[in-house]
Design a protein around this nucleic acid. Structure first.
Length: 885
DNA sequence: CTCTTCACG
DNA sequence: ACGTACGTGAAGAGA
C-alpha cells in the first residue's frame, strides 16, 4: 500500500517556533522555526519513507468560516514577525527538497489536508497527518492516522480510531461534537459556556452528538448545565459547524505531483540553504560537504607559480591584463606594523604567483605595476599592505576593494575578522587559520617554505574569490556607498597618518618618569607604614585583604573573585582611613608610569624616533576607530598630572604647531537631528550651553539660577541619554537613589519629548528589523534584542539607542577626515593630520599655514554633513599637544 | 589566559 | 525581581 504524508505547515512551524529559542544567523535572520521544521521533516522522511508528500499552509486572512462567524480566530494573537518571516524560508526549504507545498485562498491547511486524505482513502492510499491541532483527529479512519506533536519538536503521538477511543471514548467524527460543546478559545470558537472537556465527554458518551444532546435535553438534570445548553443552543450548532473540516476543497492536483523524488533531495540546494542559515549540525548530520563543483574549482586554482626567469614574461603579461588582481603580503611577526616581508602572492583568479622578499625588491617591473593606479588591486586590509610596503620603500596604488573592510561593514559585531574566518563564513574552504600555520604568541614560528608559500598563495586566491561575494552583499544591504565613499578612501588617509607618526620628546618623558618614580617610592613607604606591613599594592587581592580583613573597612562592593577595590569604591572609603587617599594617588601615578611613560617610550620607533600607532578601522561595533600599539586615543587629559604627558607630543619641526580641533557636543547634536526634538534643535540653533539648558528645563529654573550641582547633574543626564538611559546607571553615576534618577529621566523626557519618542521608536525598529543603522546606513545587528533574559535584552535595547548616535558621529568625522585630506592635497599644504580621537583631530601645522588651516579645518569639519542643527568645532593651537587647549 | 582596574571619547 | 550606563586598549596579578 502506498503511503501519503500530509503536514499542517502552519501548525508545525508554530510548534517549532515556540519550542526553540529565537535562533538567528549572523545576518540577524531568525531561523528557529525553520530549524525545528527541518528536524521534523528529516525525521519524517527517514522514518515514514512516504510515496506521496505535501505540506499544506493556510492562505489569506479570510476563510469561508468567516462568512459564518466573523469573530472566527478573532482573539488569536497576531503571528509575530519573527515567525512570519520564516514561512518563505520554509517554502524555500521544501523546494530544495523537491517536496510539494500547497495553499489555497479562502481555505485553511486543515481543509486541504481533509480533502486530500479523503481522496487518498477512496483510492486506497494510506495517510499520515502531522499536526499540533487536535481538531484533526476527526479525520482519523482505518487508513488515516494523525500524528500529534507532543513535547519538544520531533516527539509525536499517533492517533487512529482505536487510540481516540482509548483516550476519549469517542469515534473520530465525535471530535467535532466535542469542539461544538466545549469550544476552542485559540480559534475563538465559543462552544457552550460552562462546558469543558469533562462535561462535554460525559454528554457525548451518553448522547453521541450535539444534536443528540438537544433531543434529550429533558433528561439532563443538572440545572445550570441545562440552562446553558438551552440558552446557547445556536452557538453550539454554529461551533460544531466551525470545527468541521471541509473535505471538498476544489484542489486541482495530481497524485503524480505529490510523488516523492526517489532520487532524493537536491543535496547542493539544501546544502546552500543550510550554510546560509548556519545549520552546521544538520550539515554534519547529513554528512554534507561542499559540492563536487566547488571542490574541483578549488583544486583547479591551486596552480602556484614560483617566480623564475622563465615565467617572468608570462606573468608580466598576466599582470598587464585587464581586470583586477588580488594580492596578499605576509609579514613576519604579529605586530600590526610588521616590516619584514615573508612573501607575496598575486593572482588573476586562475593562476597564482608567489614572490619572496628578495624577488619583490629586485623585480622593478612588478613594483611599477604596484604603483600603477590604473591596475586595480584587491586586497585584505589595504592599510596594512600599504604600511608594509611603505616600510620597505615600495608604493602601492589602485586598491579598488578591501575584503577586511567589506566584511566588517557586513558584520561589525564580529570585530576585525581574520581572512580565514571570513573565508569560512562565506564558504570558501581550503584556507587554514594563521594560528595553525604560524602558531601564536610565544609559539610563533615560520614553518617550512613549502608550507607558507602554499598558505600565502591560498590567501591571495581567497581574496580574489570572496570580494565579488562581499561586494554583492554590500549592495544588497545598501552599504556600498559607505564602503566605497567612506571606508575605502579613509583607509588611505589613516595609512598616511600612521606613516607620519607623531614626534615624541623622549627626554621629557624620561624626566617625568623619574619624578613619578620618586613619588611612587614615597607613597609606597607611607602605605606600608599605615598598613603595618609590606604588600603588593598593585594586587587587588592583597589590597583587599589589607583594607577589608586587616583594617576592617566596610565592604562596599564585591567582584566575582573577591572584594572590589576600584576607584569609586575607594572614594567612598576615603573618610574612613588615611591610607585610602594614598592608595588612590599610588594607583593614579602607577598608571601614568607603567602605561604612559614606560609604555610610550617602548613604542618610540628606533628608526624614525617617532610613535606610529595603528588605527584599527574594522573592530568597533559602532563604526568608530580604535588605536593600538600604542593606543593614542586614551592619553590622559582629565587630571592635570596625567595631562602633562601630552607635553611630550610635539611637532616634527621647530616653529611648527600642534592644532587640536574638536567637535562640540557632536553626539547630542546628532541626537537632536535624528530624534527631531524641537527643544533640543532650538537649543543648538541658539548655540546654548547644552548642559545648562538641560538643567534649566529639568529643574524648571532660569539660566542664572542654575547652580553648578544642577549643571553637573544635567550633564550626567545628557550622557545617560546618549548611552541609552537607565535609572540604575544614572543613579550609580550621580551617587543618588534609583528613584531620584528615575525622576530626573522622567522630567527630561517630558521636556525633550522628541528624544523620548526616538528612544521608543529605535527599540521597536531594532525588534522589527533585527538591526539599527546610522545616517550613512552603517548597520549593527542586535540579535539579543529578543532575549528572554532581562539583562541581555536591556543591554541590547540600550545599544539600539546608543549605536545610531555614536555611529553617526563616527561617520561624520570620517567624512571630515577624507575631505580635509583632499583639500590639503589640493592646496599642497605641508601641514599634516596626525591623530583622530573620536570627536577630535590633531594636526601638526607649518607656521605659514596657521590661518589657512584654521579656516580649512573648521569649515570642512563643520560642513562634513548637513544636519538640522549646526555642527560646531573648536580649535586650539599650541607648541605641544598639552598646550593646544 | 582571565580578571580587575583605569585611561580616553 | 532583574542589577548595566555606550564604545575602546593596556598593564599587572595570579592562576
Amino acid at each position: 500500500m502506498k503511503k501519503l504524508v500530509l503536514i499542517d505547515g502552519n501548525s508545525i512551524s508554530n510548534r517549532a517556533f515556540y519550542a526553540l529559542p529565537l535562533l538567528s544567523n549572523k545576518q540577524g535572520l531568525f531561523t528557529n522555526a525553520v530549524y525545528g521544521f527541518t528536524q521534523i521533516l528529516l525525521k519524517i522522511l527517514e522514518e515514514m519513507k512516504p510515496d506521496y508528500f505535501l505540506v499544506a499552509f493556510d492562505a489569506g486572512k479570510v476563510t469561508f468560516r468567516h462568512s459564518d462567524f466573523k469573530e472566527y480566530k478573532g482573539k488569536r494573537m497576531k503571528t509575530p514577525s519573527e515567525l512570519s518571516g520564516q514561512f518563505p524560508m520554509i517554502r524555500e526549504l521544501l523546494d530544495a527538497f523537491h517536496l510539494q507545498h500547497f495553499e489555497l485562498e479562502g481555505y485553511e491547511a486543515d481543509d486541504i489536508i481533509g480533502t486530500l486524505s479523503k481522496r487518498a482513502e477512496e483510492i486506497g492510499i494510506e495517510t499520515v497527518i502531522y499536526t499540533g491541532d487536535k481538531d484533526m483527529l476527526q479525520l482519523a479512519s482505518d487508513s488515516v492516522m494523525i500524528y500529534l506533536t507532543r513535547k519538544g519538536i520531533t516527539e509525536v503521538e499517533p492517533f487512529g480510531p482505536k487510540e481516540i477511543m482509548d483516550k476519549y471514548g469517542l469515534e473520530p467524527k465525535q471530535i467535532i461534537d466535542l469542539k461544538g460543546l466545549m469550544g476552542d478559545p485559540s480559534d475563538n470558537i465559543p462552544g457552550v459556556p460552562g462546558i469543558g472537556e469533562k462535561t462535554a465527554l460525559k454528554l457525548l458518551h451518553e448522547y453521541q452528538t450535539v444534536e443528540g444532546v438537544y433531543t434529550h435535553l429533558d433528561q439532563i438534570t443538572a440545572k445550570k448545565l441545562k440552562e446553558n445548553l438551552t440558552t446557547y443552543q445556536d452557538q453550539a450548532i454554529l461551533s460544531k459547524q466551525l470545527a468541521t473540516i471541509y473535505r471538498q476543497v476544489p484542489i486541482e492536483i495530481q497524485w503524480e505531483d505529490l510523488k516523492v523524488d526517489d532520487k532524493g533531495y537536491h543535496r547542493d540546494e539544501v546544502y546552500q540553504l543550510f550554510v546560509k542559515w548556519e545549520f552546521h549540525s544538520l550539515i554534519e548530520r547529513l554528512g554534507m560537504q561542499k559540492s563536487k563543483e566547488e571542490e574541483t574549482e578549488q583544486k583547479d586554482v591551486l596552480l602556484i607559480d614560483r617566480l623564475t626567469e622563465k615565467n617572468k614574461t608570462k606573468w608580466e603579461k598576466i599582470l598587464g591584463e585587464e581586470g583586477p588582481h588580488a594580492i596578499y603580503v605576509e609579514t613576519i611577526g604579529e605586530q600590526p606594523h610588521g616590516r619584514q616581508i615573508l612573501g607575496l602572492a598575486v593572482t588573476n583568479g586562475k593562476e597564482i604567483l608567489f614572490i619572496n622578499d628578495q624577488q619583490l625588491k629586485q623585480w622593478t617591473d612588478f613594483q611599477e605595476w604596484l604603483q600603477d593606479s590604473s591596475k586595480t588591486k584587491w586586497v585584505f586590509d589595504g592599510k596594512r599592505v600599504e604600511m608594509v610596503f611603505f616600510w620597505n620603500q615600495i608604493e602601492i596604488k589602485g586598491i579598488a576593494s578591501d575584503l577586511l573592510l567589506g566584511a566588517y561593514l557586513l558584520n561589525p559585531q564580529d570585530g576585525s575578522p581574520s581572512l580565514a574566518e571570513i573565508a569560512k563564513q562565506y564558504h570558501y574552504s581550503g584556507l587554514q587559520d594563521d594560528e595553525l600555520v604560524y602558531g601564536k604568541g610565544a609559539k610563533y614560528a615560520i614553518p617550512k617554505e613549502t608550507v607558507y608559500v602554499d598558505h600565502i598563495s591560498r590567501k591571495a586566491h581567497a581574496i580574489f574569490a570572496l570580494i565579488p561575494t562581499i561586494d554583492e552583499k554590500l549592495k544588497e544591504t545598501n552599504l556600498d556607498r559607505l564602503f566605497y565613499e567612506i571606508e575605502l578612501p579613509l583607509s588611505r588617509v589613516l595609512a598616511k597618518m600612521e606613516k607620519i607618526g607623531v614626534r615624541i620628546d623622549s627626554q621629557r618623558l624620561k624626566e617625568m618618569g623619574e619624578e613619578l618614580n620618586q613619588t611612587l617610592i614615597t607613597l609606597m613607604e607611607e602605605i606600608y607604614e599605615l598598613a603595618g606591613t609590606e604588600f603588593n599594592i598593585n594586587s587587588p587581592k592583597q589590597l583587599g585583604e589589607i583594607l577589608f580583613d586587616k583594617l576592617q573597612l566596610p565592604i562596599i562592593k564585591k567582584t566575582k573573585t573577591g572584594y572590589s577595590t576600584s576607584a569609586d569604591v575607594l572614594e567612598k572609603l576615603e573618610p574612613h582611613h588615611p591610607i585610602i587617599g594614598l592608595i588612590l594617588k599610588y594607583r593614579q601615578i602607577g598608571k601614568l608610569q607603567s602605561t604612559y611613560i614606560e609604555g610610550l617610550l617602548k613604542m618610540v620607533d628606533k628608526e624614525t624616533q617617532r610613535i606610529h600607532t595603528s588605527f584599527n578601522q574594522a573592530i568597533t561595533a559602532t563604526g568608530r576607530l580604535s588605536s593600538t600599539e600604542p593606543n593614542l586615543q586614551n592619553i590622559p587629559i582629565r587630571l592635570e598630572e596625567g595631562r602633562k604627558i601630552r607635553q611630550a607630543f610635539i611637532p616634527s619641526y621647530e616653529d611648527w604647531l600642534i592644532l587640536s580641533s574638536d567637535y562640540s557636543q557632536i553626539e547630542l547634536r546628532v541626537l537632536a537631528h535624528i530624534a527631531e526634538d524641537e527643544n533640543l534643535i532650538e537649543a543648538f540653533n541658539q548655540d546654548m550651553d547644552i548642559h545648562t539648558k538641560t538643567a534649566m528645563d529639568v529643574f524648571g529654573v532660569k539660566e542664572d539660577e542654575v547652580t553648578s550641582l544642577m549643571r553637573r547633574q544635567a550633564k550626567a543626564v545628557n550622557f545617560g541619554i546618549v548611552y541609552g538611559i537607565s535609572d540604575y546607571g544614572l543613579s550609580q553615576n550621580l551617587n543618588i537613589s534609583r528613584k531620584e534618577a528615575a525622576e530626573f529621566i522622567e522630567r527630561y523626557f517630558s521636556v525633550f519629548s522628541g528624544v523620548k519618542t526616538y528612544m521608543k521608536k529605535i527599540v521597536e525598529q531594532a525588534k522589527r528589523d533585527g538591526y539599527v543603522s546610522t545616517l550613512m546606513n552603517r548597520r549593527r545587528y542586535l540579535p539579543d534584542i529578543h532575549s528572554s533574559n532581562f539583562n541581555i535584552r536591556s543591554f541590547a535595547e540600550r545599544t539600539a539607542m546608543n549605536t545610531p548616535i555614536q555611529g553617526t558621529a563616527a561617520d561624520i568625522i570620517k567624512i571630515a577626515m577624507i575631505n580635509i585630506d583632499q583639500e590639503m592635497r589640493r592646496l599642497y599644504l605641508k601641514s599634516r593630520l596626525l591623530l583622530q580621537v573620536h570627536d577630535e583631530l590633531i594636526f601638526e601645522v607649518h607656521p605659514d599655514e596657521k590661518e589657512m588651516m584654521m579656516s580649512l579645518v573648521k569649515n570642512t569639519m563643520e560642513n562634513a554633513i548637513q544636519l538640522k542643527v549646526p555642527l560646531k568645532v573648536d580649535l586650539h593651537f599650541g607648541k605641544t599637544w598639552y598646550d593646544a587647549k
